[in-house]
Each structure stands twice: as C-alpha cells, then as structure tokens.
C-alpha cells in the first residue's frame, strides 16, 4: 500500500470527453493571433526565460553538460539584458555536474527519472532513482508515467506510482510526463492529466522527446484546460511543460498565446510554464536580433551548444 499523502484518485467519470476536431479548430484559431512589436519582443524574452535547456542523450558527457550550462547562462552576450533559461534538464548521473555549473545563477536543475524515457523499471528502481537525483541536487524531477499500465486501464497503479514519486521528491518539484504520443487520443490525455494532478504533480508535461508526435498545440490545449479545471475544483495551480518539437519562435509565441488565453497572466512565467527544448533558444535569439537590428539573421552567427 502506497502512502499517497492524502491525495485521492479523481472521479474519472467527471473527466470530460474531448472532441478532437473541436480541439484542433480551437488550437488553429489561436495560431491566428498576430503577435507584433513590443508584444512579440516581450513574448520572445519570456520564451527564453521559460526554456528547460535539455540534453538527454546516451552520449552525454560532463563536457557536453558543462557547455550547455554555459549557454544557459550566457544566451547571447552581445545582446544585453537577456534573461537566462529557466532550467537545464539532464539525466540523474549528470545532475551533480549541472548543479555545479549553474550555481548561483538561479537556473534550476531538472533531472529525468523513473526509467526515462520508457518507464519500464521496477517500483524500487524508480523510487531510488528519484531519490538519487534529488540527493545529487535536482530542483525538479521529470518522471514518466507507466503508459502500459495506463493503457491497460490500471489507473490506480498510475496514480499510486505518481504519488509515491512525489513523496520521494521531497522539496523538488515534480513534472509528470504523460508521453501523449503513446496515449494517442485526447480523451486519454485528459484522463492522464487529471490522474497526474490529483496524485500531486507540480507540472504536467507532454512528452519525453523520444516519441513522435511530441508536443503539439492541440494536445497542449487539452492539458491546459485540464489544469484550469483542476484549479477551478481545488484552487491549486499546476504548471505546464510542452516538450519536443518546439524549435521555432513563432510556434513558441502560439503556445504563449494559448497559455495566456486559457490560463491567464498568473501562469505567464517560468514558475508555471516551461518549454522542453534544445534548439528553440537560438531561433528566439535570431528573432530578437532581427527585431533589434531590422536585419534577417543567419544561423552561423549563433552558437550551437
């Protein structure tokens, strides 16, 4: 029996049905917002500040992680007044390195855990991996749900597992990755969102980045609406992290418009919204330079780290 810290399984019968076409239409409508001038600049700066700069490769090395952390701190030194990214996101084994590299900057260190990306590990391994990441200094833990169990209808298992990981996190904030590309339907995404939030998630996150499709605007809309309904019902705020596939600033601005119009200004900061992305930052920097100089930019002038 898992202690769920008093969290209770949501009444899944109250989880609303989702009409796929309606979601896609609404998401498309959001992309019709035209974001220009100072709103665009503000949005781009905010985007930078919401990025979880990520490297999750088997070939990751300490050197690679250090480089990424340097980039996180110094996005573009020739552009004064830029914010840093929100966090760097690495495997547990790299947490220690990352933590040292970003010390004193306010940049958080996020670690994936629980048998990322498949989640195919024993309960004990998931718990101990989580605890290890936190001990190594992770401020945030990005866990994956057991999609196999979820798809088999074992919702209580999924709920209990999330609650247990939450407990293992201690003070670290927990992001729960639903891996929406494997859940396929919006009905399932909504149900998984509700389970995760009621089990104690601080963030819900679309994807590992290892499965296609990763984050999309429609699936993010479904999750943002779940967050709003959870807030209606409990008064608790939960964060949102679309991850994977967001590499263009225009798309990032669509996400911000969606966030703005579904959840509102309270959520418009990196306490409550993140982009899980590796190459988005440079595109945003190029756009910012273009806004500043009026000249379209080239990739070779922005460092790849």
């Amino acid at each position: 029996m898992v202690d769920t810290n008093g969290a209770a399984m949501p009444l899944l019968m109250r989880t609303p049905r989702i009409d796929q076409v309606g979601v896609v239409e609404r998401a498309a409508r959001i992309t019709k917002r035209s974001i220009k001038k100072e709103t665009k600049v503000n949005g781009l700066l905010l985007t930078l500040n919401m990025i979880d700069l990520t490297t999750l490769e088997g070939k990751d090395s300490e050197g690679k992680v250090k480089q990424m952390c340097y980039k996180a701190k110094h996005l573009l030194d020739t552009y004064p007044g830029l914010p840093t990214v929100a966090a760097v996101c690495v495997y547990p084994a790299m947490v220690h390195t990352a933590k040292k590299a970003v010390e004193g900057t306010g940049i958080r260190v996020a670690s994936v855990a629980t048998g990322f990306p498949s989640g195919q590990a024993s309960h004990e391994v998931k718990i101990s991996e989580t605890k290890f990441a936190v001990e190594q200094g992770a401020d945030e833990v990005d866990m994956v749900i057991s999609r196999g169990k979820f798809l088999a209808g074992e919702y209580n298992f999924v709920f209990d597992e999330i609650a247990a990981i939450k407990e293992a996190c201690g003070n670290a904030r927990l992001k729960v990755i639903l891996e929406t590309g494997e859940l396929v339907t919006f009905d399932k995404v909504r149900r998984a969102s509700d389970i995760a939030m009621y089990a104690g998630a601080d963030f819900i996150k679309t994807s590992t980045g290892k499965v296609t499709p990763a984050a999309t605007l429609p699936v993010t809309l479904v999750m943002l609406e779940a967050i709003r309904d959870f807030h209606y019902d409990t008064g608790r705020m939960v964060g949102m992290k679309p991850a994977g596939g967001i590499s263009k600033s225009k798309l990032a601005l669509h996400y911000l418009v969606m966030l703005n119009e579904v959840l509102g200004e309270e959520w418009m900061n990196n306490q409550w919204f993140r982009f899980g992305a590796s190459s988005l930052a440079n595109d945003v920097l190029m756009q910012l330079m273009k806004e500043k100089t009026g000249v379209y930019q080239g990739k070779d002038y922005f460092s790849l780290d």
């Binding site: 001038k37 709103t39 665009k40 905010l46 500040n49 914010p83 306010g106 200004e265 418009m268």
Partner: peptide, 16 residues
C-alpha cells in the same frame, strides 16, 4: 531568474 514580464493580456496585444 523568473521574469515577471507581462506578455500582455489578450486584449492588449500590440496592434496588428
């Protein structure tokens, strides 16, 4: 390092 930048509420997007 959390920016409290206002993205602008929906009604105040810069004119387009």
């Amino acid at each position: 390092n959390t920016l409290k930048l206002k993205f602008e509420s929906a009604r105040k997007y810069a004119p387009a």
